[in-house]
Computed example of a mutant assay.
Amino acid sequence: MKKKHWVTVLILVLTFGGVYSFVLFNPPLEIGTLGTAVGNKSVVIGIGNKGFREVKILEVSVNSNEKPSKTKVQVSNALQGFIITDDYNNNESKKYGFKNLEDVSIKADTSPAATYKKLDDGTASKKDEIYGISVFHSKAINQVIIKYSYFGFPFNKTVLFN
């Protein structure tokens, strides 16, 4: 009886260890489009999820872990694309679905590479959701650090702007 117990525990430990290792070495957040306005004070980073579950953006910081002046997530469609702006409430910006970070989860299977392929093939449609993190800061943005969670594990992704 004790031998069965240890075998079961060993199988569970190996299973959880394997899942943890797979998630750790295959982070799901993928970067696509990068766009900047003059002076790099306003940027948009196209992101997607190549994983199996939703990704939750926890926090966005710029440069040396500074809090940006404004941060939103654009939830748009593949045919429309993104907009670079510091005014998220004007009539033009409203078409791009700006939302607060905490209100958006990045759906699984929204890889920018897959979206680009659909655009190239002519099979993209308004149903293909795309996500962009829009950041505005009082100083030039050299890097954006995206903190997110996947399967409950925290990850960081750094995007450099030269």
Rank of each mutant, 00 (worst) to 15 (best):
29 L>K: 09
83 I>V: 13
159 V>H: 04
12 L>A: 13
67 K>N: 09
153 F>Q: 12
16 F>L: 14
96 Y>F: 14
105 S>D: 06
133 I>M: 07
29 L>D: 02
141 I>Y: 04
83 I>T: 03
68 P>Q: 06
70 K>F: 09
17 G>W: 03
104 V>G: 05
6 W>T: 11
56 K>S: 14
38 V>G: 11
108 A>K: 03
80 Q>C: 01
158 T>C: 06
107 K>W: 11
98 F>T: 03
61 S>D: 07
57 I>E: 04
122 G>Q: 07
127 K>R: 12
54 E>I: 11
65 N>V: 08
100 N>S: 15
60 V>Q: 03
108 A>Y: 02
113 A>R: 15
152 G>C: 10
62 V>C: 02
4 K>N: 11
84 I>N: 08
78 A>M: 02
9 V>C: 05
24 L>Q: 14
42 S>Y: 00
15 T>C: 09
130 I>R: 01
157 K>L: 09
140 A>L: 10
10 L>V: 13
110 T>A: 06
119 L>P: 00
66 E>F: 11
15 T>K: 13
6 W>K: 08
67 K>M: 08
20 Y>E: 09
34 L>C: 01
18 G>C: 07
128 D>Q: 01
24 L>F: 09
89 N>E: 08
105 S>L: 12
20 Y>A: 12
135 V>M: 05
153 F>E: 01
152 G>T: 06
136 F>G: 05
143 Q>Y: 11
29 L>I: 07
6 W>M: 13
24 L>D: 07
39 G>Q: 13
130 I>E: 00
145 I>K: 14
114 A>V: 13
124 A>T: 02
131 Y>C: 06
154 P>I: 15
76 S>I: 02
117 K>L: 14
120 D>V: 14
108 A>V: 04
2 K>V: 03
40 N>H: 15
145 I>V: 13
87 D>L: 11
66 E>Y: 08
149 S>C: 12
123 T>C: 12
5 H>C: 08
52 F>V: 03
49 N>T: 02
76 S>Q: 00
106 I>Y: 03
162 N>I: 04
64 S>V: 12
135 V>T: 09
141 I>L: 04
134 S>D: 00
99 K>R: 15
152 G>D: 03
59 E>V: 09
131 Y>I: 02
107 K>R: 11
121 D>E: 14
54 E>Q: 11
35 G>K: 08
103 D>T: 13
88 Y>K: 04
113 A>T: 13
115 T>I: 14
14 L>G: 04
71 T>C: 09
124 A>C: 02
162 N>R: 09
37 A>K: 15
